[in-house]
């Protein structure tokens, strides 16, 4: 089995395992896996009850990785996430008690309910894969993946993530409602017991780390890199956009496209992968004019327009 084939195999195993719980969400699962293998983090924004938490949990269970869930509330402190130094009377000194962030997969539920200070603590960990407490830096595990969720319908008592912090998420997407027949299947599955409880790990942590490294090996030609940059750059001049996507968006789009190519068993990135990943990778990073926003312009529509206006290499 070649490297690409084994990678496809790993992807397939995880995807089918997750799909046992998340019925009719193959597109969301594909995106989630692209971000997971691409070394990014994901922000899920959707209505309550659409399976955001379940998606995160099923992924954690499928890879047999450490998993912690943090429910964000207004009174949550940075130390509640990162950990705290406590005086140890026996040792006669301070010892560091690791917070829930020291794991492989963190589910930051309703991330916009915590104060900006607490949000920043998590986002620093996401950006640098390390935590600094009391002058000491602690490395996070090699596989560190954050799935944050937020609810778009509630505004009271929430602190919207600033644009700079949105940029830390490789992707943002919504799971969305499934079709009625899929929803019936969900009811049937959960009639007696939640399928999540019977979910077993299907790949090892080592396999996942190998997968992440293989994503970086996926080849990407200059022409496709240029296409990535053109799409991202065109959002900077788009009408109604105050602040376009950053070079970090280009990097993320390249990485996500590499992961998508690997999922398809391709050793190189083609423009179709770039197009596929452009909206979830770029849209949430754009800062729109309030007036344009009010008249119905969205980050998604800006990116879609950019895709339509930039000729795809063919």
């Amino acid at each position: 089995m070649t490297g690409t084939e084994s990678a496809v195999d790993i992807f397939k195993k995880i995807a089918s395992n997750v799909e046992r719980v998340m019925r009719g969400q193959s597109a969301s699962i594909r995106r989630l896996l692209a971000a997971f293998a691409g070394g990014g983090h994901v922000l899920l924004e959707d209505f309550p009850g659409t399976g955001k938490t379940t998606l995160a949990k099923s992924l954690a269970k499928s890879v047999g990785a450490g998993f912690n869930r943090v429910q964000f509330t207004p009174d949550l402190l940075p130390s509640d996430i990162l950990g705290v130094s406590v005086y140890d009377q026996k040792a006669g000194g301070f010892s560091f008690h690791q917070g829930p962030v020291f794991t492989n997969i963190v589910l930051a539920d309703e991330v916009n309910r915590a104060s900006p200070r607490t949000q920043s603590a998590l986002l620093e960990a996401m950006g640098e894969a390390q935590v600094s407490v009391d002058g000491t830096t602690y490395k996070l595990p090699e596989l560190f993946f954050v799935i944050a969720t937020q609810n778009p319908v509630e505004f009271h008592g929430t602190y919207p993530l600033p644009e700079a912090q949105m940029d830390r998420f490789m992707m943002q997407f919504a799971t969305g409602y499934v079709r009625p027949e899929e929803e019936v299947a969900v009811l049937t599955d959960q009639q007696k017991v939640h399928p999540l409880e019977s979910l077993e790990p299907c790949v090892t942590l080592e396999e996942v780390v190998r997968l992440k490294n293989m994503v970086k090996e996926v080849r990407i030609g200059d022409e496709v890199k240029r296409y990535v940059v053109d799409i991202v750059a065109s959002t900077r001049n788009a009408p109604g956009v105050q602040l376009g996507a950053s070079p970090r968006a280009s990097l993320s789009l390249m990485r996500a496209s590499q992961a998508a190519a690997l999922m398809d068993g391709q050793g190189f990135v083609s423009p179709a992968h770039v197009q596929e990943m452009a909206v979830p990778v770029i849209a949430h990073r754009l800062m729109l004019d309030p007036q344009a926003k009010f008249s119905g312009l969205t980050g998604r529509s800006v990116v879609e327009t950019a895709l339509k206006s930039a000729p795809a290499p063919a």
Binding site: S270, A272, P311, A314
Partner: peptide, 11 residues
């Protein structure tokens, strides 16, 4: 005809 923004797959 293929539209300029279409990839082979999309086309």
């Amino acid at each position: 005809g293929r539209r300029p923004s279409e990839t082979w797959r999309g086309w």
